[in-house]
């Protein structure tokens, strides 16, 4: 069964995934909206940057983050000179890493959902006296609801599953930066297969249920809109 360290790792994992997803939804919504609407000719450059974590080995991303956030890096050095401590090997560092790592999983469903709305509903709202911000909140966001759900679940699930980035910038500090995937790795290293089974099986089940929820709800949304 699960020991106390496993439960702590579970709590940290869920906290990390929740915070990262919330930050991504907050930052990702305006960015996805802009990407869906802009006619800027170099928009593809930004889209490529957003998609980068999809193909980049997590260790590469983790390495650059470690260099940046560590005591000798620009951000870590700045933090230290301001009396703080470098972000590497902290929970905050993990959140920054997760936000970057899971970005495409949140931005792309949102961008697709905003694009799918088209211009017409927003034009209609404009002729009904709604200002641009008003239109965004009362038309664009409600109509993109399935996209928000997909984005939240994928962002959450992907953060729960990360390993490489966390290992590079978070290390493996129990109670601070040790997440489930790393706890599993530790158990396997220590030949504690029963623990590894419980945690792995739990993650497998959770990931599956989340995806079932996404696909079932997307089907419902599609049927409602058809």
């Amino acid at each position: 069964m699960l020991n106390e360290a496993d439960l702590t790792a579970l709590a940290i994992t869920l906290k990390l995934a929740l915070i990262s997803t919330l930050i991504l939804l907050l930052l990702g919504t305006p960015l996805a909206w802009w990407l869906a609407r802009t006619r800027w000719r170099f928009k593809f450059l930004l889209e490529a940057v957003v998609a980068l974590p999809l193909v980049l080995p997590p260790t590469v991303l983790g390495f650059y983050l470690l260099v940046t956030l560590g005591p000798n890096g620009p951000v870590g050095g700045l933090m230290e000179s301001l009396g703080g401590r470098p972000l590497a090997f902290t929970f905050t560092g993990l959140v920054i890493g997760s936000v970057i790592y899971s970005m495409p999983f949140v931005i792309q469903p949102l961008q697709d959902a905003f694009s799918a709305i088209g211009r017409r509903p927003l034009e209609v709202a404009a002729t009904l006296r709604a200002s641009p911000l008003d239109r965004f909140f009362t038309v664009a966001i409600p109509l993109a609801r399935p996209g928000f759900f997909t984005a939240a679940v994928l962002g959450f699930a992907h953060t729960v599953g990360e390993f490489g980035v966390v290992l590079m910038i978070g290390g493996n500090i129990p109670g601070e930066t040790q997440v489930l995937s790393i706890a599993i790795y530790d158990h396997v290293e220590g030949m504690e297969y029963v623990h590894a089974h419980w945690l792995s099986g739990g993650l497998l089940l959770m990931s599956f249920l989340l995806l079932v929820a996404v696909y079932a709800l997307n089907r419902k949304f599609r049927m409602v809109q058809a």
Binding site: R120, P121, E123, V124, A125, A126, T127, L128, R129, A130, S131, P132, D134, R135, V139, P142, L143, R145, V224, Q225
Partner: peptide, 20 residues
């Protein structure tokens, strides 16, 4: 004057009601 500040009504070719 942006469209939302013009006192006009517009009927589009397709009804374009808000589906939600």
């Amino acid at each position: 004057v942006p469209p939302h500040q013009r006192p006009l009504g517009y009927v589009f070719q397709e009804a374009s009601l808000f589906p939600h």
